[in-house]
Design a binder for these strands. Sequence first.
DNA 1: GCAAAAGTGTTAGGCTTACACCCATGC
DNA 2: GCATGGGTGTAAGCCTAACACTTTTGC
Lengths: 239, 239
Amino acid sequence: MKFSKHIAQLTLDCVIFGFHHKKLKLILSKLKLAKEIYALPGGFILQEEDIEDAAKRILFERTGIQDLYLEEFGTFGRANRISDEDFQLFSGIAGDLYPDVEPPINENNQKMRIVSIGYYALVDFEKVKPQKIDLDESCDWYDIKELPNMIFDHQEMAHKGLQVLRENLDKKLLFNNLLPETFTMKNVQELYETVYDKPFPANNFQKKMLDLQILERLDKKYTGAKSKAPYLYRLKPRT
Amino acid sequence: MKFSKHIAQLTLDCVIFGFHHKKLKLILSKLKLAKEIYALPGGFILQEEDIEDAAKRILFERTGIQDLYLEEFGTFGRANRISDEDFQLFSGIAGDLYPDVEPPINENNQKMRIVSIGYYALVDFEKVKPQKIDLDESCDWYDIKELPNMIFDHQEMAHKGLQVLRENLDKKLLFNNLLPETFTMKNVQELYETVYDKPFPANNFQKKMLDLQILERLDKKYTGAKSKAPYLYRLKPRT
DNA sequence: GCAAAAGTGTTAGGCTTACACCCATGC
DNA sequence: GCATGGGTGTAAGCCTAACACTTTTGC
């Protein structure tokens, strides 16, 4: 086997979630292609690299953040997950970025399937300016409810990522990764309402959160609004 | 890239669960190697094959069952998941079974990592006689609590498979796949007690199961035991 | 004072848990 | 009858959901 720096038929794609203005956002690259088409941030995996480290590397490239929450949510390996059209579009530019990975074509000049591992990550929207890399025309935040035209099965991957986030947000109390250091109870509630796309009654929501004993109440937040000032909270330091 | 029938650096390994005599069992191959070492049933993935189809193919090879419950539970991609010793042991025989996949060695003669996708499957223990394939010395059921010496990170994979089964057995009501067509409430209870490794009070367990409205009560089962004959149940036909 | 939003309290209902009890079966 | 295990009933306790109410703030 010819040695390549990267594993040839395996990639890793990231659904990087952020929360802003009551919208759940994710980072997408607009690709430098004839057609307007978008992709999840991703890439090939180095031969000597743990897969989770590859995810961290890709996430750092795009967000500038070293320590963020990330979790694998599934593999995507349908034989036809790369449509003929997408293959034509993409195979030209991929070689520029990954010259060691030859185009995925067999000896009959047919495309070969590439399997992708999906990771999702949670970041503080305010702290992250999405970074474009070589083959991006641009890289920015997009509302998950208004996804543009996406390459391969990346739309399916984004939705699966959201589904797994929904299963885990409450169970693993991940909300801190999506909010600033300090936040109001209303912030948390709105995050929940956005992720699960349903209302949570404010009084019971607050009770549930406080009962968890994971929040530390700080000073009140005076905004000048003509209503009672809400408390700020932060996550209690880990015991 | 040289065309290979299989994807070179990606495999799929299966944790095939069965339930027998209050023990949770899984199928393992004893490998034809100098050392006594066992492996999860697995294999490479064909270029033109959906990954889920590869899992079904491998599961059919080993169990003779076409339609069984299966679910992906994660990828295993640590760079050093194949120890040097296991690599030495295995690289000789793998070439016999997969001549198209060249040994995973780079040009410096160092081993290259192979990533594995984990699937678990649930089968009726009574109906499955594990089938060995070429590089197996034998293939049989083993108690998950008494796993033998296993190759690569297969022990870790087996335990992760159990962990995901625990998360899903109750949520997705998968127990029917692990029991015969008809069963007593005690059978179900013992299955739960085995999977979760804790007791379930019989009266409340029965109530919970019956409240789910998924079981159909059949005739009593007279075994000759000097106690009340238990009802048999089966899953209600899907609506 | 008043409107707006934050925060607290109180009650009803549902689900789980624990305990007690009755029923069928073979000896 | 009686021991054994199967099956049912009931009440306590916990968690959640729904409603009502009080508090703080700026105008």
